[in-house]
Computed example of a mutant assay.
Amino acid sequence: MARVAFLGLGVMGFPMAGHLAARGHEVTVWNRSPARAEAWAKKFTGRIAASAREAAAGQEFVMACVGNDEDLREVCLGEQGAFAGLGQGALFVDHTTVSAKVTRELADILKNSGRGFVDAPVSGGQAGAENGILSVMCGGDAADYARAEPVIEAYARICRRIGDSGAGQLAKMMNQICIAGLVQGLSEALAFGEQAGLDGEAVVEVISQGAAGSWQMVNRHKTMLEGRFDYGFAVDWMRKDLKICLETADEIGASLPVTALVDQFYKDVQGMGGGRHDTSSLIRRLARPKS
C-alpha cells in the first residue's frame, strides 16, 4: 500500500480518492473548498491537508483532478503548490483534462529532479468514477507509468500508457472528438424519429444491436427522450475540452470540421441555460416543443 495525496475533490476526484482509501492506501486529501474535504473525510478514511504543498509532503504519489490549465498550474506551482512539497522519488499523476502544452510544461519542471510526472486524463464520467471503472490514458516516462499503474487501478477499468508526456492528453482529445460527433448523431436520430411519429425506445432497442450501437445510445437515449439532462459531464466542461481540441488541431494542422460545428451547437445549449446540463442535452436544439 502507498502513501497517496489527492488534490481536487469534485464529482470525479471525490469518489476516485475514495477508491484509493478503500484499497487500503494511506490517503491525504486537499480541496480549495475545505468543506468538500471535510465531507470526504467523514465518508472515507484519510487525512485533510491545509494546502496542496502540505498534502504532497512525504507522499509517494500525488494525484490531481482539477478544472483547467490555470487551475492545474495554481495547484502545482508557487509557495503553497504541490511541487514545493513533492519529495525525491515522488510521482505526480494528473487526471485533469488539460492541454498537452501545460502538461509538458509541468513535466519539464520535474524532469531530472528525481521526481516524475504522468498525465493521466480519464473517461467514463461521474458514474465511471463512482463505480471505479474509468478509462485512463497516460503519457510520460515508461518507468514512471509502471509505478503509477497499480495505484491508478483502484478506479480504472483500463489504464494504458500511450506515449511520452502529453500523449495522454492528446488521447483524451480524441475521446472528446468522438463523443461530440456521436452525441450529435444520436440527437439528430432521436429527434428525427420523434418527428416521424416513431417509438424512439423501440427503435433504439433494435438499432443499438447493430452497427449504429454505442455507449451513448444505450446509456443516454431514454433520458434524452424524456428531457432529463443531469447525468454527468456538463456542457460547460465539454466546451472547455473542445476548445483544447480545436486549438491543438490548429497547432498540428489537423482538420476538425464536425467538432467545430458541434462546439457551436453546445454554445447554443449554453445560451438556452443548459451549461450545467450533461452533454446529451444537444438534443434540446432539435426537439419539437411539447404541445
Rank of each mutant, 00 (worst) to 15 (best):
residue 172 K to E: 14
residue 86 L to P: 02
residue 215 W to S: 11
residue 37 A to M: 02
residue 74 E to N: 15
residue 8 G to K: 10
residue 178 C to A: 07
residue 202 A to E: 03
residue 93 V to E: 00
residue 271 G to N: 08
residue 242 L to S: 15
residue 198 L to S: 06
residue 185 G to Y: 01
residue 168 G to L: 05
residue 125 G to D: 05
residue 72 L to V: 15
residue 1 M to L: 11
residue 116 G to T: 05
residue 16 M to W: 01
residue 55 A to N: 10
residue 282 L to Y: 03
residue 272 M to R: 12
residue 26 E to A: 13
residue 229 F to T: 11
residue 173 M to A: 15
residue 50 A to P: 09
residue 125 G to Q: 04
residue 224 M to N: 13
residue 76 C to N: 13
residue 2 A to K: 15
residue 277 H to W: 05
residue 222 K to E: 07
residue 237 W to T: 15
residue 171 A to K: 00
residue 161 R to L: 13
residue 126 Q to L: 05
residue 65 C to R: 03
residue 118 V to I: 13
residue 281 S to D: 08
residue 290 K to R: 06
residue 146 A to Y: 01
residue 224 M to H: 08
residue 227 G to V: 05
residue 51 S to N: 05
residue 232 G to R: 08
residue 180 A to E: 01
residue 195 Q to G: 04
residue 37 A to F: 02
residue 287 A to R: 10
residue 192 F to L: 15
residue 164 D to V: 08
residue 269 V to S: 13
residue 90 A to K: 00
residue 222 K to M: 09
residue 231 Y to Q: 15
residue 67 G to K: 09
residue 134 L to G: 00
residue 69 D to E: 06
residue 111 K to S: 13
residue 3 R to G: 10
residue 9 L to G: 11
residue 30 W to S: 10
residue 56 A to R: 03
residue 42 K to H: 07
residue 207 I to W: 06
residue 69 D to K: 13
residue 54 E to Q: 10
residue 65 C to A: 12
residue 241 D to E: 09
residue 156 A to P: 00
residue 132 G to V: 04
residue 287 A to I: 05
residue 198 L to D: 03
residue 92 F to H: 14
residue 133 I to A: 11
residue 111 K to N: 06
residue 66 V to Q: 08
residue 59 Q to Y: 02
residue 53 R to K: 09
residue 178 C to T: 11
residue 208 S to H: 06
residue 184 Q to I: 07
residue 101 K to S: 12
residue 185 G to D: 05
residue 74 E to G: 15
residue 255 S to D: 10
residue 22 A to F: 01
residue 73 R to D: 09
residue 273 G to C: 07
residue 275 G to Y: 01
residue 36 R to I: 13
residue 187 S to M: 03
residue 1 M to Q: 08
residue 219 N to T: 08
residue 224 M to C: 14
residue 146 A to V: 02
residue 84 A to K: 12
residue 9 L to W: 11
residue 277 H to M: 12
residue 176 Q to R: 02
residue 191 A to P: 01
residue 224 M to A: 12
residue 105 E to Y: 04
residue 205 E to M: 07
residue 73 R to V: 14
residue 194 E to H: 04
residue 244 I to L: 15
residue 137 M to A: 14
residue 183 V to C: 05
residue 58 G to Y: 01
residue 101 K to E: 15
residue 164 D to N: 09
residue 46 G to I: 03
residue 168 G to I: 04
residue 45 T to P: 05
residue 111 K to R: 07
residue 93 V to N: 00
residue 154 A to M: 01
residue 47 R to Y: 03
residue 48 I to W: 01
residue 74 E to R: 14
residue 270 Q to E: 11
residue 229 F to Q: 09
residue 258 V to N: 09
residue 52 A to K: 03
residue 235 V to A: 14
residue 98 V to C: 14
residue 275 G to V: 03
residue 122 V to F: 01
residue 284 R to M: 08
residue 2 A to F: 07
residue 154 A to I: 06
residue 17 A to I: 02
residue 18 G to A: 10
residue 175 N to T: 05
residue 50 A to Y: 02
residue 35 A to R: 08
residue 168 G to R: 03
residue 124 G to P: 01
residue 222 K to A: 13
residue 10 G to H: 04
residue 287 A to D: 05
residue 118 V to F: 01
residue 51 S to F: 02
residue 69 D to A: 10
residue 116 G to L: 01
residue 127 A to R: 08
